[in-house]
Write a protein that binds this DNA or RNA. Sequence first.
DNA 1: TGAAATGTTGGGGCG
DNA 2: ACGCCCCAACATTTC
Length: 500
Amino acid sequence: MCNRTRTPTADVSQGSPFTLFWFRQDLRLADNPGLTAAAEGGGTVVPVYILDDQEEAPWRPGGAGRWWLHGSLQALDDDLRSLGSRLILRRGPAAETLAAMVAETGAAAVHWNRLYEPHAIARDTALKQRLCAAGIDVASHNGSLLREPWTLRTQSGGPFKVYTPFWKRYWAQRNAVPAPLSRPGSLPRPDTWPRSDRLAEWRLRPIRPDWAGGLRATWIPGETGARQRLDAFLGSALGRYGDGRDRPGTDGTSRLSPHLHWGEISPRQVWAAVQDRLQAGGLDGCEAHAETFLKEIVWREFSYNLLYHFPSLPDAPLDDRFAAFPWRDTDRDADLGAWQHGRTGYPIVDAGMRQLWHIGWMHNRVRMIVASFLIKHLLLPWQLGEAWFWDTLVDADLASNAASWQWVAGCGADAAPYFRIFNPTLQGEKFDPDGTYVRRWVPELAKLPAKYIHKPWEAPARTLADAAIDLGRTYPRPIVDHRAARHRALAAYEGIKKAA
DNA sequence: TGAAATGTTGGGGCG
DNA sequence: ACGCCCCAACATTTC
């Protein structure tokens, strides 16, 4: 925060103070505190995005993330142009590239919205010191969270490690959430723009093979798409969210996760929109549904809280006992591959994994089922699942992804008990009773009657034949027996449970 | 934000 | 009519 109150010195060559706004995971114009601060500085504003995808950059965006990023940057540039501005693109190590831009343009001030990943914190802290030392006015802002992790402490002074009290704190202060900022009215542009890469040069989208058809058909990256998604959700699914969110065959969830991850919409905006919707009235019994939805927004906050206070979250189990967990170390590849490609023989698992592959997203209920299956039925380390999700999800988010995998594995803070093992057949029958979801994503099972849609191995030969299924050929038999796998997992857990 | 195993209860079939 | 058994249906405990 050094120099924050200092008046920016005018850059002689430009004739007016020159401010860089560094876009990162806040690819929007409205409710963007850093951008607003830059616009209010009085000088010209240069919006910049830096792609840092060198090999050594930890947790750089995966394939699906890169696809999304392309669309979001394009939308952002369009939106900026409607304000008479534009987006400058640069590629390289983030801190060095930004510092070089400051020197090159003679900027007097730099603004950005904070990130919370351990490597980003370290990088940004060092960069801020470096720029401050050079006399640049640097300010960072909160653009991504309702509350930042260091502002929340339990009664005893430590970080929250349990969700329920964390949520209660948020709920008690639900009316204290600041109103979202509107988009800047104008962004004064410099006489000449700095050099910019062309987005197409970055090759963020796949070409050969082009696996992104399902993504294009499903998503509208960018701030406008985010707002449309929110409005659509508020108008329909929110009113039955409590149970609708558990039906993967329906459009019962918000699908805002990728928009939130990339910062095309902020949690403050979502929070305010839900409150407005409640106060608009005519929503008998909707209040409980809205609260359930807001709890999901706060789960995201909780994940960021965990990542901030426990930076090893993405890599190592928070529960030390799991360091000794006997994960399977032989014949991993075949089972991992079957899981990744949706050929486990359990329809609900395979449907989820194929949905993920096709549209870069998976229904949350099904995420829990497939994660439980990888960890407990296949006894493979949760980090393998975390890595696959990282590469394939358009909403891949370090905090949410890591916290959720640890939660399912039972090794995180406030985690699901390890002995809670999902039965994929029962989960399917309970939440996809008519098989709509399975039929959609596992079309080779589409003709199977509902009675067998979640357990084709129990179907009579005649029924299979009528449905044009040749079990073991057109669709696999289960790669593990549920009952045996369950006992194996419980025995493995028993082995580490006692250890202090 | 489980499922399975085990325990309990009560109606009905039956000798 | 009575006791016994069976077994859903539900509750509780265990993993």
